[in-house]
Design a protein around this nucleic acid. Structure first.
Lengths: 342, 342
DNA sequence: CTGAAAGCGCTTACAG
DNA sequence: CTGAAAGCGCTTACAG
């Protein structure tokens, strides 16, 4: 790579000091009452030499990198990819760039990624923190590193966070299924202690109880995070084979990644949606609109989540809020009724 | 944010020089024949003080950031998201982090993003370059910045690039449709001069001619990059309404984003796949496997593309290859036969 | 075997 | 109105 032109070079070129050049190129020429023609001269030279300030040097000096670190479970997952895009857009508005890492819900990897990004001196983090990373998040607190949690949080650790009303959303979705006349409603979820997932299942259970149907533990199925097609297939078959004697007539999926695989399984098994089984899922990837039938979904407000997370983070970075007061944001989801529930 | 411990601090703490600490923490203690017990002592202190080297300072000194810049059209697009994940994984193996930007195929935005990343001193780029960015890519050449193009390239600009055999893939897909007995085969593509897209349409045309059906320009439909649902709907309706007199019995989509919307339109219009219209599309998002019928697809080798791009880029960065010899890689796609062609 | 010093490219008090 | 100097936190010749 060729060397880039530096402040020193353009100063030498013009016969003025680096100080002066730095001041005018930072737009503070007026403030320092540099002569108008000198300002012009410097700006012209910078343009001609295609001067690009070296951010490493700036950061080292100022302590700010204008970079934020985004760690999510998997950037290939449409939920996180779309959220990532919203975060990128909002960050760009304020001149921030974003580095990303996929932690695969692995707390060891997550910890390493935080450390790498800290060495890179990111100004703050947006984190989708996996189970097992509690200690790491606590460490961020003690070090007073600006961060905001997204999609999930730890009730025991004071944090800025942005989540959706998982309990309510699941509650209402289940209620909707019941009102559609469904009685044997299953919940397929991840075998994780993530509060978000637990809340969804709790909302589902509460709804069944409140509406007089009663929760049946055998209808709650957990699959592992790195679920295989086979694992999901077994779960779906199990639920629907039972159904010969005791029909499962609806499934609430707690994650669209599982739902997408589940729908494939239903197809393979020749089970009809919504005639045999009604379906509702969390998340709203595009795929849900092209199945037949289209799938009713609980959509998260990704744009709002992206914007809010950046705004809260930048407030922290710029220290407008103290480190004591935490922003705890719970957003509403949108229930998109399509054709999978009759 | 609290201040982190620096080399100086741990040197002072131990009563040795920064030089020494730097050497042992870079694992070069032996090389400099530092006494074993001193090495131990330094390492212990670093651990206890949770020392994290400041990358800004390292980079400023060494001129390397161990960061690469990834600019693609849109990280929310599953094709790029999955590719991004592969790139992230491969980069991590070599200790590189990745910054990403979505250019939306906008050359102005693309240029700005390159400049921002250059200021951040990324060691190199992986770029999905939009039409109109030729000059920018040329500038990278003259500045001898390491980069590799991905998904598309400019025939007139010598570059490292990784693409797939778009012409062949479209040729064979079209041939497949013809062999399935289809005669009126449409191609829905993007209205862009991107070589990748042109090649796909050219392969489609050549196939029709070679197999004696002949290409019919009126069956090639272009939609804008920022296509609306309405625009695609009109295109699909147009193709299928014509079909009453002169039936379109197959569609080759040049991009899965369009295909996904197109499939929704076919559904709305009550057109049966594959009875009325057979479908093949480029790209292979998960969604294609959950429609009924499942959609036959031309899958790109994303993992290989990710790995190769990093490997070529790192070779450039480490100067193993001169800047003169370019790596021009064309990978094969995989034709995944599913149920959308009868 | 270890340390003092220079320098990467900036910004920012401080001085005049 | 402008400049000389210090310093951000490292690494790396150089010296002994």
């Amino acid at each position: 790579m060729k060397k880039k032109t530096s402040l020193k070079e353009i100063a030498a070129h013009l016969g003025v000091s680096k100080t002066l050049v730095s001041m005018v190129l930072n737009g503070r020429g007026k403030e320092y009452r540099i002569k108008e023609d000198v300002i012009k001269k410097v700006e012209k030279a910078a343009r001609e030499l295609n001067y690009q300030p070296n951010k490493m040097a700036q950061s080292l000096r100022t302590g700010k990198t204008k970079t934020i670190g985004l760690i999510i479970a998997d950037i290939a997952n449409p939920f996180f990819a779309t959220l990532g895009r919203e975060i990128e857009n909002e960050a760009a508005k304020y001149g921030y760039s974003v580095m990303f890492c996929s932690s695969d819900e692995n707390p060891k990897k997550f910890k390493q990624q935080i450390e790498i990004m800290q060495r890179s001196m990111v100004d703050g983090f947006i984190l989708s923190a996996p189970i097992g990373s509690e200690e790491q998040i606590g460490a961020l607190n003690s070090a007073q590193v600006p961060y905001v949690l997204i999609d999930r949080y730890f009730p025991n650790i004071p944090s800025n966070y942005i989540v959706v009303d998982n309990f309510e959303s699941a509650y209402n979705a289940t209620k909707y299924l019941i009102q559609k006349g469904r009685k044997r409603i299953a919940n397929v979820t991840l075998n994780t202690k993530l509060k978000a997932m637990k809340d969804r299942t709790d909302g589902y259970k509460k709804s069944l109880v409140d509406l007089g149907i009663g929760a049946d533990g055998s209808l709650i199925k957990e699959v592992s995070f790195s679920h295989s097609n086979q694992e999901i297939f077994n779960v779906i078959r199990n639920l629907t084979e039972n159904s010969k004697t005791d029909p499962v007539d609806a499934i609430l999926f707690s994650s669209s990644k599982i739902a997408l695989m589940g729908i494939q399984c239903l197809l393979k098994l020749g089970i009809k949606v919504p005639e045999d089984v009604a379906i509702v899922t969390f998340d709203n990837p595009e795929a849900l609109q092209i199945c037949s039938p289209t799938i009713t979904a609980i959509a998260q407000p990704l744009e709002e989540m992206g914007k809010k997370s950046i705004n809260i983070l930048l407030n922290q970075i710029n220290n407008k809020e103290g480190y004591e007061s935490k922003c705890e944001v719970e957003l509403k989801t949108e229930f998109l009724i399509r054709n999978s529930c009759g």
